[in-house]
């Protein structure tokens, strides 16, 4: 799984590079606009270690933001599944707020909270929170009538049991949604760093942009891709373990 993800990314990355060099050749662009392969290689040797730590910094914020957004989406999703006024209010609010681009709100967060960790974390969490929330609400508000009927009519249904039944029956969907939102957490963190933070790979890309240094940006993109692929592969691996364990429970019928 890991090697497949990495292989896919490296393939796409080098296709992208080849496309850039083709454009450079066709339009006879200078090394200032699109650097030559030796330039990129030299830049990579120079900035690799610094960018590596920047990407690790970004990834750690993305992971914490991702975990935060999963926790928030779970709690709010559990309340949002209700058919009363509170559930209805949360669902309506979630649908409306998610339509608003978080990136547009990001400068306000930087003004209020500064350019430190809290702003990066908040933006990363918000960017992957809403897609997660909508999926969680959708999954948790869908009744599993064939199972719930007995509990409802024998007076045994509790909200914890309802959530457990619905989560168990939709475990594969939940795992896919959580793994899929990891990319959004990484994107959110990089965007927040690019807009206003003073650390992380997004910040380094902003500096490279000011210097008009495409080599640095290409090195940063390479490292971002490698580590995002790694994170996704780890999540998929964890998801497979959970899914297998869940499946075994169902087969054995043991709690």
């Amino acid at each position: 799984m890991l090697h497949k993800r990495l292989y896919q990314f490296v393939l796409v990355y080098f296709i992208g590079l080849a496309f850039l060099f083709t454009i450079k050749g066709v339009f006879n662009l200078s090394d200032y606009v699109i650097p030559s392969p030796p330039d990129i290689y030299n830049t990579a040797r120079r900035v690799f270690m610094r960018y590596l730590f920047d990407v690790l910094n970004t990834l750690s914020v993305a992971i914490v933001g991702h975990i935060l957004s999963i926790a928030m989406a779970t709690v709010v999703g559990i309340i949002g599944r209700l058919s009363n006024w509170m559930g209805s209010l949360i669902r309506t609010a979630a649908f409306n707020i998610q339509a608003y681009p978080i990136v547009a709100v990001a400068p306000m967060i930087f003004i209020l909270l500064g350019d430190g960790l809290s702003s990066r974390l908040l933006i990363a969490a918000m960017i992957c929170y809403f897609p997660l929330l909508l999926s969680f609400i959708g999954i948790l508000s869908e009744p599993i009538t064939d199972i719930e009927h007995f509990y409802i009519h024998s007076g045994r249904m509790r909200w914890q049991l309802e959530v457990k039944i619905r989560a168990f029956e939709n475990m594969n969907k939940l795992i896919t949604v959580v793994a899929g939102s990891a990319t959004l957490a990484m994107v959110g963190t990089i965007v927040s760093e690019f807009i206003g933070a003073s650390a992380g790979i997004g910040y380094s890309i902003r500096i490279a942009l000011y210097q008009s240094d495409l080599s640095k940006i290409l090195v940063a993109l390479f490292l971002i891709g490698i580590f995002t692929s790694l994170y996704l592969a780890v999540l998929e691996w964890l998801g497979n373990i959970v899914s297998r364990r869940w499946g075994e429970l169902e087969v054995k019928g043991m709690s």
């Binding site: 064939d146 199972i147 168990f168 169902e250 054995k252 019928g253 043991m254 709690s255």
Partner: peptide, 8 residues
């Protein structure tokens, strides 16, 4: 009707 999957 079905029984919950986690229980024997």
């Amino acid at each position: 009707e079905r029984l919950p999957g986690w229980s024997g």
